[in-house]
């Protein structure tokens, strides 16, 4: 499998009256045809990692390479055509689409990006169909869709660019619970069909279990455990991963309270366990 993304020792800092190091030495690689899920709780740095990888955030230090070439942060200049093979799906479906532009035209921008790299892409109508919407809706404006439908359109636009890498930052957390796993599965299917790789950011571990090949667990800016999803699930090694998995309540009707950590942020969660990284 060919590596599409390689991030090494990534650090992201936010300057304020106190500089916050949101991402502290994160390394990850994603190959074509694989979904890597980056999971963790709010503020752990997973979204900052995604934004840095795609170039929305200028990293403080570290190296990001897409297909071997460095990824410069989005600046004033137009992004090079090769880099349009990295696409992103955002958390908030309401701000993901231009309210003044027909959805078909927005998907067509993705098609144009694919063509600029000499690739063919389906027509916007077909992309709408691919994400489970009525192809005739191409002439509508975003406000005529529900939040969940808008997210599907944003996914269609990103995929229409025929990306080699899709970065999805909490793409399902704004959706109704009943459609979350469906949309996540759809994303996995379409990305893999295209032979691309995906970085899937989520705080919802149950969804990650069914759709990620590998998982990286982030805590306070660092990856504490990573490996094949099934392996991490069945046999978590790091204390934080154990706590995280143990705390998930399951809708099984058994009335079992999930395990609660004895304290907030116990010291053992900060431990560095080299054996927990890159398992499998």
């Amino acid at each position: 499998m060919s590596t599409v993304l390689e991030a090494t020792d990534l650090a992201v800092e936010y300057r304020g009256h106190r500089t916050v190091r949101a991402v502290d030495g994160v390394s990850l690689t994603i190959s074509a045809g694989e979904v890597l899920a980056l999971v963790g709780e709010s503020g752990c740095g997973k979204s900052s990692t995604a934004r840095a990888v795609i170039g929305m955030e200028k990293p403080h230090s570290g190296d990001i390479r897409f297909r071997g070439a460095p990824v410069p942060p989005l600046g004033l200049r137009r992004r090079k055509a090769e880099l349009t093979a990295m696409q992103m799906v955002f958390q908030d479906p309401n701000s993901s689409l231009n309210p003044r532009k027909r959805v078909g035209d927005q998907i067509a921008d993705g098609v144009t990006a694919a063509r600029s790299r000499g690739l063919s892409s389906d027509a916007p109508r077909q992309w709408l169909g691919a994400v489970g919407l009525d192809p005739d809706m191409v002439t509508r404006y975003p406000h005529q869709f529900s939040g969940g439908q808008r997210q599907r359109i944003a996914i269609a636009r990103a995929l229409a660019a025929q990306p080699d890498l899709l970065v999805a930052d909490e793409p399902i957390s704004a959706l109704d619970a009943s459609s979350q796993s469906e949309v996540a599965s759809m994303m996995r299917r379409l990305v893999l069909q295209a032979g691309a790789g995906m970085l899937f950011i989520s705080h919802d571990l149950s969804v990650v279990r069914i759709m990620a090949d590998r998982v990286a667990v982030m805590y306070r800016g660092r990856i504490v455990e990573s490996g094949p999803t099934a392996m991490v699930w069945a046999d978590p090694v790091h204390p934080y991963t154990k706590a995280l998995l143990g705390a998930i309540p399951h809708p099984d009707g058994k009335g079992v309270l999930p395990a609660a950590p004895a304290a907030e942020a116990p010291a053992e969660w900060h431990e560095e366990l080299p054996g927990a990284l890159d398992r499998g």
Binding site: I54, D92, S95, P99, R100, D109
Partner: peptide, 24 residues
């Protein structure tokens, strides 16, 4: 996000201004 999405699709700054920003 939609402006950034446009930039990621290879919009030039001028195009971004004209088609994503100014209409809004």
């Amino acid at each position: 996000n939609f402006v950034i999405a446009g930039r990621l699709l290879g919009y030039s700054p001028w195009r971004s201004l004209r088609s994503d920003i100014l209409p809004n």
